[in-house]
Amino acid sequence: MNTLRLDLENYRDLLAEYIRTKDERALYQAEQFSKQSMQQNISPEEIINVHLRSLQELYPELPDYILDSFDFLMETMMSYGLAYQEFQALREKQLELKSEISVAANMQKTLLSTTKPEIEGLDIGALSVPAKQMNGDYHHFVIDDEGSLGVAVADVIGKGVPAALCMSMIKYAMDSFPELRMDPKYILGSLNRVVERNVDSNMFITMMYGMYNTEDNTFSYASAGHEPGFYYHKERDEFEEISAPGLVLGVSPDSMYEQYQKQVDEGDMIVLLTDGVTECRKGDDFIEQEEILEVIREYKDLPSQEIVENVYKYFERLQDFQLRDDFTLIVLKRDV
């Protein structure tokens, strides 16, 4: 089909053809005409004008009241044209915002990036996937001056850009800690003060901080209102919740945190996560803790990185590939 010209002559000919034949083909062409007009930002009042002038050319004897009625129609269509133009402008703005957010998301990725360390005797797997473009979850690995591994998993209550901005602050606060070994409870205590002083009072951060001592294979941890993790005892083939009492970061300036310690035996596994994992949903129902553990159990003999990836794939599929919340999962497994 030849390309349509958006001019009076073309419209008039199409109209004449339609009036003569009542042919669907002419109507189809009118539809094309309408689409192209929109692409070229031609407003409804202009189309009405083209229609009126075509009529005048085709039927020079047209009575005045018919002609006048088009002025009336034109006036009634004005708002539609304006609304359409506004819609177009807003759409452009939206695309702009989208691309800005994706730049910000990339920046955030760089800012918050953490390298998964290689530690002899400990197999580490970590995965963090944002539900939207910006990630409100955060995890961080650090090796202290005595060679122990510090691991943080955090979740901002809230999603999107504000949550992401908030996380950047946490990251810098943690970077500013000395490299001396610090107990998890003290790390949470000082992060709490940073958050309390710098973040809006309606934004909270939960965090689990753990330290794996590679010399005596102990895992010490403290929690600031964070989702409990799991500890897998290989010998008993049992999971146990890892949790510790403590207020979320940013609520009160003098929150104290309690620290607990576990002896990690060969083949034992520590699982840290965010509520994006535990609050996965099947349809409208939350999944049961049992289901998470079953899935982890199914893959427990794989290397840690493969465990987290397989668990993620399972829940991604369960949720029809649309994450509702940011998903972060970390597995530390003491090598056999």
Binding site: S79, A83, E86, F87
Partner: peptide, 20 residues
Amino acid sequence: EDGFSTSGGLGAGLPGVKRL
């Protein structure tokens, strides 16, 4: 600003005047 003020998504208001 588009979409703000009295327009209520009708494209009117001052941005509408500017377009017309």
